[in-house]
Design a binder for these strands. Structure first.
Length: 497
RNA sequence: GGUCCUGUGGCCGAGUGGUUAGGCAGAGCUCUGCAAAAGCUCGUACAGCGGUUCGAACCCGCUCGGGACCUCCA
């Protein structure tokens, strides 16, 4: 079997994955800022890294997956009246900051659950680690790479860049950063334009504030991730992930902070997912084109023709490689919805297959093809988590399953061993690795009882050639979104939209 | 302006220098009381122009288009 290779943003190439401690993987992923509701764009990294998390565990690694909650506000925009994002909205909504944080944290957790993302091993909050952040800032000052001005502390990028490659991760040229002509206000405290805040002093009316050696204030934008990743994963860990838009300045600055404090670049492998776009443009607050997850599920948004289930969204995202942009569109979402349904229904049929033992495949060629399609899956995942290819292969197996089920092919076209292999791989890949579920295809006991009754009545009507009645049952069920399917052997199955 | 990414059939999207990605939609056929579902078959796409090569969607150059980051952003 092939080795796992991951694309490392830091080196810009695929590299064989080797954990620092054999058998163990430490992974840190930048979590949400809980000052607002998550939108579709947020679903991508958490699904991407959920699959990576699942796959690493599948490979037998013991993984510690840390994903933070950013619940301490940072500035809205550098230079502009440095307002605390969370407290600003809190005033508008007349809520306590922590009440707001709680609300959106709960909503985020709910969405993660709907999308079937596993919980991270540790989900630390920024507000819970103010002490660690302050300690880290002290250390950076002591080492001479940060300076205090009027109660705020800034990281000295120029000095750092004299000894370390600031800008390597994001492909930035330090001189450009230092000499940026960008007209920013309130920059006079900084020695150089490229410097970034480690601690920000706040005016008295600011709600979110903590006491520090430099006065009242709140931590800078990047220090929380450095502090929390160090605390829970150590000074050097395996994977650091997040959206591509975090490359600069967030991750670049994290590297700088950790390098000074820990004498180490924090992570070996930097993994970044690409963006979800709307009409080719990134979904984000800057463009005011976000569709909240609650809206995605319910369909209550002008851009949505209908609501899409969490699994449809998960599947939609996994059909694309995580490093490609993914364009939002109703047609694409509906294609995903139908495709997932077809795949899942075939999987359900496969699970129920039970035949006599067939040690020999009647169709050796087909048997070999099935085996090849299945063994490919491991290689695809090992090749930088290519979930798109995994799904493509699984789809190629759908006609094999359906044609056996429909008796277009006899069950012994493939061997029992291959059939079992297929069952195992489908479960492993669809459920365990890709994290898909079929829950919402409705199978609660009472409904199926009612359905069986209706199916029975319809069968009787058909037997009497009372097609008016049989069609009435079928058509009205269809209007309710329940599809009846007459199968070859006289059985009737149904699926719920 | 700087750095980087990208342009694939109606839509979404994989992609290795030579062989079918896949999904959805569409067409035909089979099955069927009808329908649906399912099965089989099909379109032969790779922004444009050059070049490298026996051979390029995939390598190089140019042109045109789109995007990301450079500021909070997944």
């Amino acid at each position: 079997m092939s080795e796992l290779k991951v694309y490392n943003s830091y080196t810009r190439q695929k590299e064989v994955f080797r954990p620092i401690t054999p058998g163990h993987v430490g992974m840190y992923v930048c979590g949400p800022t809980v000052s607002g509701e998550s939108h579709l764009g947020h679903a991508r990294p958490y699904i991407t890294f959920d699959v990576i998390y699942r796959y690493l565990m599948h490979l037998g690694y013991k993984v510690r997956y840390v994903r933070n909650i950013t619940d301490a506000g940072h500035f809205e925009e550098e230079g502009r009246a440095a307002e605390d994002k969370i407290s600003k909205k809190a005033v508008l909504e007349k809520l306590e900051p922590m009440e707001l944080v709680q609300k959106y944290t709960n909503l985020f957790h709910w969405a993660m659950k709907e999308l079937n993302n596993l919980e991270p091993s540790i989900e630390p909050t920024a507000t819970g680690h103010i002490v660690e952040q302050i300690d880290m800032i002290k250390k950076i000052i002591a080492d001479g790479y940060a300076y205090e001005v009027n109660g705020s502390v800034y990281f000295d990028v120029k000095k750092y860049s004299e000894n370390y490659p600031y800008g390597k991760l994001s492909g930035r040229i330090v001189d450009d950063l230092l000499e940026t002509t960008r007209a920013l206000e309130g920059q006079e405290e900084k020695r150089n334009k490229g410097d970034f805040a480690l601690w920000k002093a706040v005016p008295p009316q600011h709600i979110m504030r903590w006491t520090s050696p430099w006065g009242q204030g709140f931590p800078g934008w990047h220090i929380e991730c450095s502090a929390m990743s160090t605390k829970y994963l150590g000074t050097e860990f395996d994977i650091h992930g997040g959206g591509m838009d975090l490359l600069f300045p967030h991750h670049e600055s994290e590297i700088a902070q950790s390098t000074i404090c820990n004498k180490h670049s924090p992570a070996r492998y930097w993994i970044h997912n690409n963006m979800i776009t709307v009409n080719g443009r990134k979904m984000g607050k800057s463009y005011n084109n976000q569709i909240r997850l609650t809206e995605m599920f319910s369909g209550s948004h002008p851009l949505l023709a209908k609501g899409y289930s969490p699994m449809t969204i998960r599947f939609f995202i996994l059909q694309t490689h995580y490093r490609s942009t993914l364009d939002f569109g109703n047609e694409a979402l509906q294609a995903a919805e139908k495709g997932l349904r077809r795949l899942w229904e075939a999987y359900e049929l496969l699970k129920k297959f039970s035949f006599d033992e067939f040690p020999e495949a009647k169709n050796k060629e087909l048997d070999a093809k099935v085996v090849a399609l299945l063994t490919d899956l491991d290689d695809f995942m090992n090749d930088d988590f290519n979930t798109a290819k995994v799904l493509a292969n699984l789809f190629e197996l759908v006609p094999v399953i359906n044609s056996i089920h429909d008796k277009h092919q006899s069950p012994d076209v493939i061997s029992t061993a291959t059939l079992n292999m297929m069952k195992n791989y489908f479960t492993t890949y669809l459920e365990n690795i890709l994290g898909l579920t079929g829950d919402h295809y409705g199978d609660n006991g009472k409904l199926s009882g009612v359905m069986n009754l209706l199916i029975e009545l319809r069968k009787e009507a058909r037997a009497k050639k009372d097609y008016a009645t049989s069609d009435k049952i079928r058509n009205q069920l269809q209007q309710l979104g329940i599809l009846l399917k007459d199968e070859k052997d006289g059985n009737v199955s149904y699926s719920i939209e």
